[in-house]
Design a protein around this nucleic acid. Structure first.
Lengths: 208, 208, 208, 208
DNA sequence: TATGAATGAGAGTTCATTCAT
DNA sequence: AATGAATGAACTCTCATTCAT
């Protein structure tokens, strides 16, 4: 009985945190970190203004926790969809498609991430790169390297190419109109990228 | 005589504005719009905090003026270098190289632009796209279309492809380390993009 | 049976209050009344923040109860040691020695008292003087008056001199270094005071 | 002309600081450091709440500046009156009298000093002792040592005795009723102290 | 009796902007 | 045109207290 109550309480706490994260994502997305209003986050989450500090010691800690949580979801969302596909080219295609899907399904969280990664605070930016390391690795190993091994992608340095592909993803997926619809077509990006990576037969395609 | 004084006065005014823009770029780049400190801008520009309001009616107006000025310089910098080259593929190469060069030579202004375009304020974001229209047009007409006409680029929709290429430029060129050095190699981007755009001979390059 | 349980319960309650007083003394001594943290007191006493309100209706009530308890202990500590000595001069000596000993053995509680008596809250200050009345009386009657009756102290107004001697005690004993060691030597104080009170033989000791 | 305006402006600034110090002294005396209300200080000084931060970077900095200023005035007040007197015993008498006079003429500042020196913040306490060093030195050199050299005071360690006499001064002068009148008579203190310090003729004054 | 999540008034501090000089 | 003292709204964060469990 006591055990059950304990578990129930923890569940309620978890739910409360989730509500907080949602409200925080909305507010950080709306206004950016500096102009985000802690009071408004609390209120939108259904609390009094002080309550937020029972969960996070500061506005910044809240943002960091939100980023960490979002990054994990982002990673899982993409990997779950990409990982089940055998063909490396299709994997690449799915990487961008799933990525764009994640953004449209998690608009607020995605916007917070995009804002933060391009914002002026270098510490936050570094933090984001840290938590996105697994996704970098995944692109390098499970997409690029797979394709190179199978001879469908050119021999490229997987690390730097993964960085470029991720940057293209982040740069393109972050361009949204007011309703959160992307300006760019993921298929177009995929075309460009797959053409760019495609293994040339015997001919040399140098441009210099 | 009066005429000369008039001209002198205007020159001083211009110089003052330039100093203001430099200081503003530094500060906006350092801290972002919200956390930028008007007082610090004034001081770094070499005068008292109130003086700034003799030149711009508000912090926001200063930012907008800075963006407009920077965008023109950005445009000229790139077009001056790209426009003199005949070959479309070389033009594309120079577009990215000049773009990266502009960033490293105008770090603060470039950072302000990157921060703003990815920041939460949609009005500012829209403003940036407005002032960058000429560059969009230039990429579409003077690089892409030129290459298509000459048969070196695939038949693509120049408008949407220009948007994609610009987005890739903005996304990649904005990734800088603390010292302002880019993380990504423009040559690698150029390779990918030129491969991606390259006209396929007779074969079909479908991936579906 | 019921009786025994009743007694047990009261003992537990007493122990809990003692733990609370210790934690409260530490915290009030560390930070002063205003900055003392009720939550920290609860935690250090070994229970949750709300529990404290089952024992005391407010932070202030806790401080007052602590002061009352401490004052009684302070009084008993001194009187137990002074009362058994017959000679008035030795009594005076023991008063300061025991007083300093009490401070070093009850650092936290003593500090709370010193802070409060010198603090800005006049109500609290008045309360302290009230609870220290017995000690004032003791100094006046059982030390000063005894010495006057035995002809070893000058004829002085016992009430005002007791106030002065107590003030000197409070003023000197409250000066402690960070480790709680007194800066001043009680013997030096005793010397000064005993010399000062000493009955002059036949000569007149006027100073004007 | 410009020079004069410059001077005028500095005078106004000085006056403003003085007003601020007065208001701050009142408020710190009323409520102690922690409960002192910055807003109330500003208002009582005749400002809006933010203005105070044009003069001092924080509440604490304001307190420290106030203490420094007060300590200098306190020192000058006493030294001006004591220094002109030749006789060491009269000097001692004047030390306590002038000290008590200073308190009644500068109630708020004195209260702030007393509260702070006995308050829980050890850093502040240390700061006070630092700024009161000159007065310690004065008592040791210009009162005690003078008396010893002239053979009117017992041979005592001037440093520790000065500390004791200062502590007695601070302890006794800080006991004021609500209207700021001292509870203790400085003459009584002087009597005790002078008797205590008086050189014994040929007899031995041991008490052990 | 014990718990600790929730409350919300209130604190110190910041800073874009104003305006008399 | 230049100054910088003054303004005050708005912000983040603290914490004594309450109360449902």
């Amino acid at each position: 009985m006591v055990r059950i109550k304990q578990i129930e309480r923890e569940q309620v706490l978890e739910q409360t945190k989730t509500r907080l994260f949602q409200a925080a994502a909305q507010e950080f997305a709306r206004a950016g970190y500096s102009d985000a209003n802690i009071n408004m986050i609390s209120t939108n989450a259904g609390f009094a203004k002080g309550t937020i500090y029972n969960y996070f010691p500061s506005k910044r800690a809240l943002l960091l926790a939100l980023i960490d949580t979002s990054a994990k979801q982002h990673f899982n969302f993409i990997v779950d969809r990409v990982g089940v596909i055998p063909d490396p080219r299709k994997r690449m295609e799915m990487f961008y498609q799933a990525g764009f899907d994640y953004v449209s399904q998690n608009l607020a969280a995605a916007r917070v991430m995009f804002n933060t990664i391009n914002g002026p605070d270098v510490t936050l930016k570094a933090h984001i790169f840290e938590v996105y390391q697994p996704l970098f690795q995944f692109v390098a190993d499970q997409i690029l390297n797979l394709g190179i091994e199978q001879g469908v992608f050119e021999q490229v340095d997987t690390a730097s190419m993964a960085l470029l592909l991720m940057t293209i993803y982040l740069g393109t997926a972050s361009q949204l109109d007011l309703d959160g619809r992307p300006w760019l077509d993921p298929n177009q990006i995929v075309d460009l990228v797959l053409n760019g990576l495609q293994k040339k037969e015997a001919t040399s395609g140098d441009h210099d």
